[in-house]
């Protein structure tokens, strides 16, 4: 076990890790940031998505040591400074883009990264962009609407087309 240091949600943090410790274990067990979830262990479901230096990464397939010194952002760091929901989070609530909530942190993180790259995606681009995140509750309808709304588009009108 050695101490691994990185920046998480704007704060410098340090916690012990073995060589085999995954970033998601480091966040959940080492730092107590349990908002990042493990849904599959094989990089398929996306519940564990966080941002590493601004890029969406599946934290179940990254060793903590490999991102030492990086700037990591998790779902716990997505609200506004005053504690209110951020734009993406608010869009998910407004459009009922979550039910059980388990895939939600990964969905929000993937969406934020997607919109940073493509601020005004088409419906097809949203669906393609979310392909690495599995939701079993919503049938994706309201998630896609939430992402479109978070990009400032009229989600209801697009869904009705």
């Amino acid at each position: 076990m050695t101490n691994v240091t990185m920046t998480v949600n704007g704060k410098s943090v340090s916690a012990p890790a073995e060589g085999r410790t995954l970033l998601v274990e480091y966040l959940r067990t080492g730092l107590g940031l349990t908002g990042t979830h493990v849904g599959c262990d094989t990089s398929q479901c996306g519940a564990c998505v966080v941002h590493v230096d601004g890029r969406a990464v599946k934290s179940c397939t990254v060793f903590a040591m490999d991102v030492e010194g990086s700037d990591v952002r998790t779902i716990e760091g997505m609200a506004n400074a005053d504690g209110s929901l951020g734009v993406v989070q608010q869009a998910f609530q407004d459009h009922h883009g979550l039910q059980c909530g388990f895939c939600t942190p990964g969905m929000v993180m993937t969406t934020a990264a997607l919109l940073a790259e493509n601020p005004r995606p088409s419906e097809a681009e949203v669906r393609h962009g979310l392909e690495g995140n599995i939701c079993r509750c919503t049938g994706y309808h309201n998630i896609v609407k939430a992402v479109l709304a978070a990009s400032g588009q009229d989600a209801d009108a697009i869904a009705a087309q």
Binding site: L33, T34, G35, T36, H37, V38, T74, I75, E76, M78, A79, L85, Q89, F92, Q93, D94, H96, L98, G101, F102, T104, P105, V108
Partner: peptide
């Protein structure tokens, strides 16, 4: 709108694990 969403959207849901 769902009140439970706020905790789920901010990573503050508490699941068993």
């Amino acid at each position: 709108k769902r009140r439970e969403d706020v905790r789920f959207l901010t990573g503050r849901g508490v699941y068993t694990d």
